[in-house]
């Protein structure tokens, strides 16, 4: 899976550089989120601007990140959701769980 991780002020930003976040590649994102948390960071932003499609495995990895962040009194925020991705969050009610922003900058300003 292609992604880019950057430390930006208070938060670590993970840019997912894939059209699909699904059962075929989501475990790699999960491993990256675990690596970031275990490295001592507890505030994450996952940017999904380039993701056109997400399945339940992709959602599950983000839920895993949410739980991991909560355990550490941290946060995981999402940005750049395309329409189809947003509709999956709404279908599974996860849009009520995550803080979702239009852009990474909006997410950063919320801290």
């Amino acid at each position: 899976m292609n992604f880019k991780t950057e430390k930006n002020g208070r938060a670590v930003v993970v840019f997912v550089k894939e059209e699909r976040l699904d059962a075929n590649n989501s475990e790699e994102l999960k491993a990256e989120l675990v690596r970031i948390f275990e490295g001592g960071s507890k505030d994450l932003i996952v940017d999904l601007k380039e993701v056109r499609f997400i399945d339940s495995s992709g959602l599950g990895v983000l839920v895993s990140g949410f739980k991991n962040a909560s355990t550490r009194q941290g946060t995981i925020k999402l940005s750049g959701l395309q329409t189809q991705v947003k509709s999956m969050f709404e279908l599974t009610r996860l849009h009520r769980v995550f803080d979702i922003f239009t852009t990474v900058d909006d997410a950063l300003e919320s801290y």
């Binding site: 399945d55 339940s56 959602l59 599950g60 839920v63 279908l91 599974t92 009520r96």
Partner: peptide, 15 residues
């Protein structure tokens, strides 16, 4: 759907 009791898996058939 409760944020305090979220599971990582188990949404596929529901979807």
């Amino acid at each position: 759907f409760d944020a305090d009791a979220l599971e990582e898996k188990g949404r596929g058939i529901f979807i």
